[in-house]
Write a protein that binds this DNA or RNA. Structure first.
Lengths: 214, 214
DNA sequence: TGTACATCAGTGAACGCGCGTTCACTGATGTAC
DNA sequence: TGTACATCAGTGAACGCGCGTTCACTGATGTAC
């Protein structure tokens, strides 16, 4: 995939004291490169510099090295995901709706920009915000995103709307399933997925009834 | 990840007429590089040549370019996967056991060499043996692997041991779930997956009873 | 059995490329007096 | 109001690297006579 001839043609240098703005421009450009190419190695210092409209060495005023840009982009993306989930969950009160809203927010995040999702979760095992296989997105209570999922299922069990006898295991299964679906849903996937596969996963793997029917 | 100092120190050149052997050595080395590093770009002509113990240009006698090596390695891996599934399925007669054996063979294939699996299925959307999101592994009857999965579930329904009302959709969900699990099971994953998550997926997503209990 | 020779398996040097990173620099901008 | 100057934002040339690929080649091996 070849990118165009660098959209940022005429850049005016930042005023004094506003040099920090370039940091944001760099992150934005790096995120876009990652997203468009779906490969970490598309994010070269020189490609980023071209996209921003600066010379490559200028980046060193804001980042120590190439790896630090990647890390910052990935960290930012994980924050976005965490925030999207929290926002969606907090808009609901019914435990089933809360669970389902969180899962749907996760899936939407992935489907909106499949390449970005792949890069983020392709890092599992290569370090990154993962530990012991789970990921360390911290929620409102400083809990991991996976912990929140377990809690959401547990709440459903307590409310008598889930038959789960192993919320932790079922949360793991649900995460795996959802991750698999998002991973396989490439940018131009034409695969005939069943309607509402997310609802299907939630019902069968978290063992809850459809919301409103319980 | 840096690889060692090239294990193939003293290579003796192939006899006349046996030049084709080098092709196999190249493929083997490329597969190993792919597996160890988990990244396609670890498979450079020069790295392959070093691993085999030849000079880089020698590769051109057997492959047109770098991409052709990658393609061959991936094609070979998919053949292995297809064969592993067929073999496992054919050892069973009970429809539930056949379904489960196939799924387990798929999962074992992935878990044995997680990096290889990631590279193979990370290619979805970038071309490869995929079409419309499914993959074109052809089984004994020339059917796709996904088609075989649909058939396996349908057989269970016919035998009265699956409650699926949408074998195609349930096959898709099952594939996604299994793929997600294998993808998240990194080489050094310590995540506490539930015991027999594969059986759990088969039972809940293909809606079959545990084998022997029906 | 001996020898000339075609063929085959593989080499070594070189090319141009994009990369990360370094270095000494430039020139506009704001500030002190 | 004017001017010298420190500082800040960013540049341009250069480095060494590994890469894919090309080219003309070498030397062992088998074969024809």
């Amino acid at each position: 995939v070849k990118s165009g001839a660098g959209s940022a043609a005429a850049r005016t240098r930042n005023r004094r004291g506003e040099g920090g703005k370039l940091r944001e421009e760099i992150l934005r450009a790096a995120a876009r490169l990652l997203e468009e190419n779906g490969r970490e190695d598309a994010v070269t210092l020189r490609a980023v510099a071209r996209a921003v409209g600066i010379s490559a060495p200028s980046i060193y005023a804001h980042f120590d090295d190439r790896e630090q840009i990647l890390d910052a982009v990935v960290a930012e993306a994980f924050e976005d995901l965490s925030e999207a989930i929290s926002t969606a969950v907090d808009q609901q009160t019914d435990p089933v709706r809360r669970l389902e809203a969180g899962v749907r927010a996760y899936v939407d995040f992935g489907r909106q920009r499949p390449q970005r999702y792949r890069v983020l979760f392709g890092r599992i095992g290569d370090g990154g915000p993962f530990e012991g296989g789970s990921f360390e997105l911290s929620g409102p209570a400083g809990e991991t995103a996976f912990g929140l999922l377990v809690d959401a299922i547990t709440d459903c069990v307590r409310a008598g709307v889930s038959d789960s006898v192993d919320p932790h295991g079922d949360a793991a299964a649900l995460w795996a399933a959802v991750h698999g679906f998002v991973s396989l849903c490439g940018p131009d996937s034409e695969f005939p997925w069943p309607e509402d596969i997310v609802g299907l996963f939630v019902r069968r793997l978290a063992r809850v009834a459809a919301p409103g029917s319980g």
